[in-house]
């Protein structure tokens, strides 16, 4: 199970980075979303993966009888998902606004904040 998740995370990171290497902002954002989910899955895997074992302690014992998944990474992922959702929603809104105002999503064409020097243009 861990191996499968590790491979999945690898594929997601590879796809995400590939998308982020293009100059198109929307693709960059999609890459970022993949990367963000890959990070969450990686954390999920660190908390031990078990198949439907409830974290209950049988009577008379001090610890669960068989290994159970750690709940803390899952709680952290929930926090990270919420934060990530907020940030990515903001970024999407910003990308849309950029497209409307600047008329392009090509990062190479966005030179307003750092205009090329005059002699560079020709």
């Amino acid at each position: 199970m861990e191996t499968a998740l590790a491979v999945l995370v690898g594929i997601m990171v590879a796809t995400g980075v590939y998308l982020m290497l293009t100059a198109n902002l929307l693709r960059y954002l999609f890459g970022l979303i993949l990367l963000s989910n890959a990070a969450n899955l990686a954390i999920f895997a660190t908390g031990r993966l078990t198949r439907a074992v409830p974290p209950l302690v049988p009577e008379g014992l001090q610890a669960p009888a068989e290994p159970v998944a750690n709940a803390l990474p899952q709680a952290m992922i929930l926090t990270a998902i919420v934060i990530g959702f907020g940030l990515l929603a903001f970024t999407l809104a910003l990308v849309v606004r950029c497209y409307r105002e600047l008329g392009t999503l090509d990062a190479n064409a966005m030179r307003l904040s750092e205009p090329p020097a005059a002699d560079e243009e020709h």
């Binding site: 960059y28 954390i43 908390g47 990270a80 940030l87 990515l88 606004r97 950029c98 966005m110």
Partner: peptide
Amino acid sequence: LDGGIKYVALNLVSTLLMLTAIGLVYG
């Protein structure tokens, strides 16, 4: 908007690296 989108795009990568590292530290 032009400067902002670059700031946002690169800083989000930083938070993802940090989040991954934190997960691994916990593991």
